[in-house]
């Protein structure tokens, strides 16, 4: 498996506080990876750096076989390069219908001039119907996204990520605030997603991570503490110390 994302030597400081400290690790093509760690370990900051929201003080983030340096690109360019992100809170466009939301995310030209003259073709409508079916929102297409339930919004957002067809998907705490059956549905979605692309899941919930059954990276104070299968890392005394020591 070839490397898709390589983070090396990244550090970032906020007002004297070192949020990320010489962080290095890599994700392979088509891999499913869980990133865990206590509060303040730098999980969200790591995602911010990869998606271009935060600029690190030093380090490199290389992406794809051409090894594009993501740190030189704007958020939009990074997204177009194939990095998708799902936020912790479901963020969909509440004032627009489910279909419009999916249409926005659909892979197409993004420049204003091209968007202006873009009109959906039958294939696009078919693709939207297919995506809606995949995330279980087929009968919600004409509804406004603002009217959906919390879980439905999460799925719509995942549907939008699918429409974007990213090569790397960053998912921030997908199970937060979900009911039991919704969690299961979400786990299935993520596992099926990982079949065609790399997925990085940032999660708090060990049970959820166990169900994903994938390689785990433990972050602590802005750098990698341990890496391996969940059983392997939970046996690591340093990890136990960090988690138990923090209560």
């Amino acid at each position: 498996m070839s490397t898709l994302l390589e983070v090396s030597g990244v550090s970032v400081t906020f007002d004297g506080f070192r949020a990320i400290n010489n962080l290095s690790f890599s994700i392979a093509e088509g891999e499913l990876r869980a990133v865990i760690g206590p509060n303040g370990a730098g999980k969200t900051t790591f995602m911010d750096i990869v998606t271009g929201k935060t600029r690190p003080d030093s380090g490199r983030v290389l992406f794809g076989e051409k090894s594009v340096d993501l740190l030189r690109l704007s958020e939009a360019r990074i997204a177009r390069a194939g990095v998708g992100r799902k936020f912790q809170r479901p963020t969909v466009f509440e004032d627009q219908t489910v279909a419009e939301n999916l249409m926005l995310a659909l892979r197409a030209h993004r420049a204003p001039w091209r968007v202006l003259f873009w009109r959906p073709k039958p294939a696009d409508h078919a693709r939207i119907a297919e995506l809606a079916a995949e995330v279980g929102l087929s009968d919600q297409l004409p509804r406004k996204a603002g009217e959906l339930s919390h879980g439905q919004k999460q799925w719509l957002e995942i549907g939008m990520l699918l429409a974007q067809e990213p090569r790397l998907l960053l998912v921030d705490e997908p199970a937060a605030g979900m009911t039991g059956p919704e969690r299961e549905h979400t786990t299935d979605l993520l596992v099926s997603l990982a079949r065609s692309r790399a997925v990085v899941v940032v999660e708090h919930d060990m049970e959820f991570v166990r169900r994903l059954a994938c390689k785990v990276t433990v972050l602590h104070e802005g750098s990698v503490l341990a890496e391996g299968s969940l059983d392997h890392v939970t046996a690591n005394p340093a990890v136990i110390d960090v988690y138990l020591g923090r209560g």
């Binding site: 929201k53 997204a79 968007v115």
Partner: peptide
């Protein structure tokens, strides 16, 4: 059209539109 959809999305949540790959500034 889709353009209207994009600009309304920018109005409500421009950061999200950026992560969809749209050049918001443009």
């Amino acid at each position: 059209g889709k353009f209207g959809s994009v600009i309304r999305a920018i109005r409500d949540d421009e950061a999200r539109v950026r992560f969809l790959g749209y050049p918001v500034e443009g």
